[in-house]
Design a protein around this nucleic acid. Structure first.
Lengths: 192, 192
DNA sequence: ACCCTCCCTGGTCGATCGTCCAAGGCGAAT
DNA sequence: ATTCGCCTTGGACGATCGACCAGGGAGGGT
């Protein structure tokens, strides 16, 4: 037997999934109560029953997606045998993304919304810091110079490449990896 | 004597400036006819007199700002004596930006809006292509390997760094330049 | 003096917005 | 069987939205 509470949680999840889709399709500030409910297949009133506001729902949905992506990248960085391997595997995960794919657009939408929502900014800032730290640990283990700054730039470069792919075709696969590899193969003398 | 046509053009410019401000403050899809008019200090009806729609006004405003930034970077790339110098000067132009400054936010907002507006996507895509080409020419002149892919990655890295700065503090100035310099100082043997 | 053209005003239109709420439904506990 | 607590429904509220337009006003050409 399915309890009412279980059905309630499932509705919550459906609303979160609908929010993630609609942020991408319409843009953060254009996601409305009624469209959310329709996409989730529930009555409009349920949105404000399960969440205090539409904005709170969007924030929770975005953070959840970011968390799931972070959960995928973490083991890659922790288990790599070399900085080269970590880079290659990481790029492989994003190589099918063309900048207009749901995940890429959602991330950028969340970044922007974070400039206008302090809670979201803090949540995403912590996750970015965590990713940078994991990446820096990976680079430090494999003797890359200035691992902290390198990790920050590498993370930024990946996001930037995805951002630019939405506008115009850019380097993919091997060509992209070859350029980015310069960041992690320079020895300690790379820093002046 | 100020003719009516001159005043009309000035109102148009005021609306474009107001649009650029409001896109940053409120987000692309949250800029409304009436707020635009109020910020520009004109009657609401003028928005749809000078522009066919609010969306058209936003697109024109974003493209105009992008063009003015491109006009600032172009001479830097063309006149640099070395790839190092071009990189340093370029970074200097963006070093005061913290990711929440008007120009950075406007660019990202425009990138996102471009995924939902084909005209804007094409306009920004052309400008990105032009910037990449200028940067690639600069790199090629100073014997950097694989200038096209390097230029694309470098451009993406700069945008990515600005994007991430909005979420968390990142490398600035010398530390940032030191890492990015690896991209442009690797010789032809850098590509395996 | 006339008209023509363009700029501008201020308000109306139907649609849609976020939020809230009274009332109904239904399993679980008493 | 009754009560309790949570989930759910569908609509009401005032505010605001983009787009539109009838009409006023003021130079410039005739």
């Amino acid at each position: 037997m399915v309890t009412a509470a279980q059905r309630g949680q499932e509705v919550r999840q459906r609303l979160l999934r609908a929010a993630a889709e609609l942020i991408v399709e319409r843009g953060w500030t254009a996601v409305t109560t009624r469209v959310l409910a329709q996409r989730a297949g529930v009555a409009p009133g349920l949105v404000h029953y399960h969440f205090t506001s539409v904005q709170a729902l969007l924030v929770e949905a975005a953070v959840e997606v970011a968390r799931s992506v972070a959960a995928q990248t973490a083991p890659v960085l922790a288990g790599a045998d070399s900085a080269d391997e970590a880079l290659t595997t990481l790029l492989g995960m994003f190589d099918t993304a063309d900048g207009t794919d749901p995940t890429s657009v959602l991330f950028v939408e969340a970044y922007l919304a974070a400039t206008r929502d302090e809670r979201l900014r803090q949540a995403l800032g912590e996750m970015l810091g965590q990713f940078r730290r994991q990446l820096a640990d990976c680079l430090a283990t494999h003797a890359v110079a200035d691992p902290d700054a390198t990790a920050a730039v590498l993370a930024a470069a990946i996001d930037g490449v995805l951002l630019h792919r939405a506008l115009a075709a850019g380097p993919h696969g091997g060509a992209l990896a070859a350029v980015l590899r310069r960041l992690v193969t320079a020895g300690p003398e790379g820093a002046r």
